[in-house]
Amino acid sequence: MKSALPLFALAALATTSIFGALSAAPIDAALPGTAAQLSVPAPAPAPATETSANLLFANRPAPAPVTTSTAPVRLADGHGHGGWFFGMFDDDDDDDDDDDHGGRHGHHGDHDGRNCPPGATNCAQSPAAAGTTDAPANGLFTPGTKPQVQSN
């Protein structure tokens, strides 16, 4: 059974490392909202040693969420995210804004197979190289012309 030891050691180390990596505290908070709120001085910072899972406002009442952004808004809820994949639970939340995707499990980014910033599309696909297609019609280029490039 001596031969099994390296495999056990490896499995133990890899598991520890994976758990260690996934136990990071998420940046996860309700957005501070309106200009009126913003003109109010920032609340006093919590002690620097605060390291609970919901790091940011864990011991503060969460401000009301606002909808100025299309970013997925999540409340400091009790899902116990500290220590596992956050994305695993995301779409199961009742307060999720993707009601039309009812029973679908997965992450927000899965909807179009990409992981783009909110509202953006086409950000994971590498662009077409120069010469293989026309320059974009952004009004800067003379239509139909090809760029020339030289590197030394």
Binding site: C116, P117, G119, A120, T121, N122, C123, A124, Q125, S126, P127, A128, A129, A130, G131, T132, T133, D134, A135, P136, N138, F141, T142, T145, P147, Q148, V149, Q150, S151, N152
Partner: peptide, 26 residues
């Protein structure tokens, strides 16, 4: 927003340290 359609047809190789890149556009 990282939209790569913005650079379709105007994308080339990365440029090494100390190198020179000349682009001519109409």
């Amino acid at each position: 927003g990282g939209n790569t359609a913005q650079v379709d047809g105007i994308t080339g190789a990365s440029v090494g340290a100390g190198r020179n890149l000349t682009i001519t556009l109409d």
